[in-house]
Design a protein around this nucleic acid. Sequence first.
DNA 1: TAGTTATATGAGCATTTATTCAAGTGTTTT
DNA 2: AAAACACTTGAATAAATGCTCATATAACTA
Lengths: 122, 122
Amino acid sequence: MTEKFNSIERCDCNVIHEDIVNQVRDKMPQEESLYDLAELFKVFGDSTRIRILWALHEAEMCVCDIAVLLNMTQSAISHQLRVLKQANLVKNRKEGKVVCYSLVDDHVREIFDQGLIHINEK
Amino acid sequence: MTEKFNSIERCDCNVIHEDIVNQVRDKMPQEESLYDLAELFKVFGDSTRIRILWALHEAEMCVCDIAVLLNMTQSAISHQLRVLKQANLVKNRKEGKVVCYSLVDDHVREIFDQGLIHINEK
DNA sequence: TAGTTATATGAGCATTTATTCAAGTGTTTT
DNA sequence: AAAACACTTGAATAAATGCTCATATAACTA
């Protein structure tokens, strides 16, 4: 939101390619959309969270089960589940003392798959 | 690779849900795949890089043009292009002094789209 | 050859982030 | 009621990260 109008030096290219740059500028989505998109991918950009998401894609699980599965502390898992929930990727359900987490929808799987396609094609 | 065998306390859940946890464990991809996947998404998880990728999806561009388009220094753009190249998302082509960058393939667009589907559905 | 242009790179700095630790909440069990 | 249990939360810390600044490189130009 804090648009900057600093002293980015222009070069000859900018003049030569002015039309191209302007065309691209017009086609770019609004700053906010791209920021949100980056925020979403940032959530996927951590191996702990990726592993949690993958696990939840297989089955609904409680915090302590995920902790044992990934061999990490409950606290660490709980912190990351919070991030995942804020990103609207997981939801939870209370069953007595236990809190069960699951995926909100199946987008996660599709995003995974796209990523894997890229990785497996190098 | 450095597998940890620390003192993650087991709870009653782990015993009750032992079968589920083991099933999920068996289905989980190898640690390395998920790590690579996280690394890929980490690259997408920055708004500068997302904006560069989006721009390159519209047109092949040189470093200084991208810098002007995004109103950032050439140095900052160059650093990020390096990250994108290491992730095998962009390639470059030298034309005299000028270095032109473009997308390696169209996976980027597909990964974008999956992300946008999720964002637009809250 | 000297100077300019376009880009790359390394060090430094400020910010973000993932985990740990300690303490707190709410539920169940004894 | 007290203790145990599953989980959450906030502060602290170490590591990672993005940008800036100065400098280096490589190609073009005068």
